[in-house]
Amino acid sequence: MQPNAKLEDYSGVWVVVERSESEIDPVVLELLGKAWDLAKKRNTSVTAVILGKHADQESKKLGIHGADNILGVHCPDVQDYEQEFYTRVLTELVHERKPEIILIGATPQGRDYAPRLSKRLNTGLTADCTGLDIEETTGNLLQECPTYGGNIMAIIQTVSSRPQMATVARGVFKPKIRTKASKVKVEKITYCFDATRERASTVDIIEQDGETRDVRDAEILVAGGRGMESSENFGLLEELAREIGGKVAGTRSACDLGWIEKNCQVGQTGHVVKPRLYIACGISGAIQHTIGMQDSEHIIAINKDPEARIFSIADTCIVADVLEFIPAFINAIKRFRNS
């Protein structure tokens, strides 16, 4: 926050737009929906900020999902994401226009520049929020986020500085659609980015080798966590998935341990999935994981710990040793399918 500015000088909710491929990242639309709620409570408006390339057809999409204004910053020298460009441009825009709240996707890109931006603005940043609301008495943003491995929830506030900054992972909020069409105000500015500082620059983008399994489109997912105990035991999940016509996914622990490829990870730092059936095998249910799968149509949880948190979001609970249960389950499926 600028030294001579007051808290009440700041107003408006900003969402920073991110693209994946050439599309607007889904998290942006989810954030716009939440920003819309917050702006209503603060009696203010929502601005979507687009850095770099700006395509006009995107304005409509952003407007439908909750943006009242669009601020497009065009920079001839920057094609894609760049840490210093984002940090510098956003800092200058914030100093000039003083938004009260800034929401950023907790994507690899957002995690890269948001902490630097908060430092340069000398204001608070809360990571990976799972809930956002306005405190009536103070007007402060109430930022709910999991901590200590998701075992504890904290409400965090930025009380003495503005803007209040928060990052949110994909899938936490639902996108909203405006039924009443309203005019979106589009403003475009050009920014000349002169890189005087040493920059970190992208050398190459590499497509990963091997079959890319896409867990996002699967109707049935068989997911394993630390309770699977080994890479070999993940073979059981492959067998179950084949038998039931699904795909295999994993928690962050399972992916980090190398039991399954990283691109099959479900949760806050992986994919958000909504299959018809989600079978959670040996998964404790830390909130970082459940954020990514809690909207599945039907959730079956198998865990030997009756107190496991996963049972609180499951539809069907099975307290059993997963390694003993799955072979029996595979046999039973074979029997019933043919009956």
């Binding site: 504890i152 930025t158 049972f311 499951a314 539809d315 609970c317």
Partner: peptide, 19 residues
């Protein structure tokens, strides 16, 4: 700049069956 104003244990509840 950030203050923790509250901490609690999450208890999401959902109706379910146990086999």
């Amino acid at each position: 700049k950030t203050k923790v104003s509250k901490m609690y244990t999450p208890e999401p509840k959902k109706e379910n069956i146990t086999l």
